[in-house]
């Protein structure tokens, strides 16, 4: 399979490559462009990006793997990152976690068999006044209760079923 990005992504990349006093700065922005389009920065993408910057693939992967948000392999359509840090702990995120595990029938770090959900824990996401909370893909869901989580998960399930994965 050859590595192909959309014209839009290519354009965005081109803009980023010429945007900084030192080209290297475009690395994170380029990661994001690829990540947004492919849901991950896989090996093919790493090699492609290495070419863009004239870096070794090792260097690209070294930077990539430093940042937790950047995935190397694609995950579920909805990646649920439940905050496990202190404020959410004090506000009993563990109840939400058990609930999510029951609802999705996965453990932390796993993706549902239908590929719709990935469940993971995250460090503090800066939503401590509205704990417990989770980030699903790019969006924050705050002041979580079991009921709210059930509602959300069911909504996403429906969405995934109607729109296909």
């Amino acid at each position: 399979m050859s590595f192909e990005l959309s014209e839009k992504a290519k354009k965005e990349i081109e803009r980023e490559l010429g945007r900084y006093p030192v080209k290297d700065s475009a690395l994170l922005p380029v990661f994001w462009i690829v990540h947004n389009e492919r849901g991950c920065v896989d090996d093919e993408a790493v090699e492609y990006i290495a070419g863009l910057f004239d870096f070794s693939a090792a260097k690209v992967l070294g930077v990539l793997s430093f940042y937790w948000m950047l995935r190397r392999k694609s995950a579920g359509k909805y990646v649920i990152s439940l905050c496990k840090n202190i404020s959410c702990y004090l506000r009993e995120y563990e109840n939400i976690l058990t609930h999510l595990q029951d609802l999705l029938k996965v453990q932390v770090g796993e993706t549902t068999k239908d590929g719709v959900f990935t469940l993971q824990l995250a460090e503090c996401l800066g939503s401590c006044g509205t704990a417990p909370m989770m980030m699903v893909n790019n969006r924050y869901y705050e002041d979580l209760t079991r009921e709210r989580v059930t509602e959300l998960v069911e909504g996403w399930r429906k969405e995934a079923m109607t729109n296909g994965k």
Binding site: F55, S56, A58, K59, L61, G62, S65, F66
Partner: peptide, 10 residues
């Protein structure tokens, strides 16, 4: 200047 070895993760 070949950069073969790197650190991964943190």
């Amino acid at each position: 200047h070949t950069g073969e070895l790197q650190f991964y993760k943190r």
